[in-house]
């Protein structure tokens, strides 16, 4: 079969794709803001000494880790409004679904990092007169953030890629715009290749950055 590859169609569709990329970036950014903060809170709760505090959050983490993201996104869009009577616009709903998913993965990264905070650091915190809350804010959080940073960045990029799934629920992200352009132009090969390259062009440098941060932190620790 002969296929005449013509990339100038992509050039015409470029503004639409950029519009989609902008939505994808907003989605990724907002979900990451939720996940970086909420994830830390969930990590603390899941490490609680009280089982009835610990249990629901452990379950929440396992729920998000053990079901496909695609199912989570669709469940949020179709089931949350009916089950909980929460009616949100597609964009906030997408941010919520992806943000919670990422928060659970980040919580695991934070938890490992918190457990790696040397016990003596906490002793020093007590000896200097910090309250339990101050110890979390001034000692545990900075320690855990640094230790978890490479994983947090990697999780963040993964979410950027997984956000393509929201195209299925009609959020106008990069993937959604790609589908529209492909259908209207009858040029799926050029369009989806371009879409893939755009995802790559954003992900790759950030992945390199994560590797750099990891190496820097190793040097600082040595």
């Amino acid at each position: 079969m002969e296929y005449d590859v013509q990339f100038h169609y992509v050039k015409q569709a470029w503004p639409y794709l950029m519009e989609g990329l902008w939505v994808t970036l907003q989605l990724t950014f907002a979900a990451n803001v939720i996940a970086l903060t909420l994830g830390f809170g969930i990590a603390l709760l899941v490490m609680s000494r009280l089982w009835f505090v610990r249990a629901p959050f452990a379950l929440l983490i396992e729920f998000f880790r053990c079901t496909p993201v695609l199912v989570q996104v669709i469940w949020f869009f179709y089931c949350v409004p009916i089950l909980f009577g929460v009616y949100l616009d597609p964009m906030p709903m997408g941010i919520l679904a992806l943000g919670l998913n990422l928060a659970c993965f980040n919580a695991e990264a934070y938890r490992a990092a918190i457990q790696a905070v040397p016990r003596e650091q906490m002793d020093a915190g007590v000896a200097l007169g910090f309250s339990p809350l101050q110890r979390v804010a001034y000692i545990i959080f900075p320690h855990a953030l640094r230790a978890a940073l490479p994983v947090l960045i990697t999780n963040g990029i993964t979410l950027f890629q997984q956000s393509a799934l929201v195209a299925l629920v009609a959020i106008g992200d990069l993937m959604y715009m790609g589908k529209q352009v492909a259908t209207q132009s009858y040029r799926p090969i050029e369009t989806f290749t371009a879409v893939a390259l755009i995802y790559f062009a954003v992900s790759f440098p950030v992945a390199r950055l994560a590797a750099l941060v990891e190496r820097r932190l190793d040097v600082a620790r040595a």
């Binding site: 650091q121 000896a127 001034y138």
Partner: peptide, 20 residues
């Protein structure tokens, strides 16, 4: 008593400075 504790200071074997 946390207020009385503030009158006591301690130095540990492994420095325990805050690395950040």
């Amino acid at each position: 008593d946390a207020d009385v504790r503030k009158k006591v200071g301690m130095v540990f074997q492994h420095y325990t400075l805050f690395p950040h």
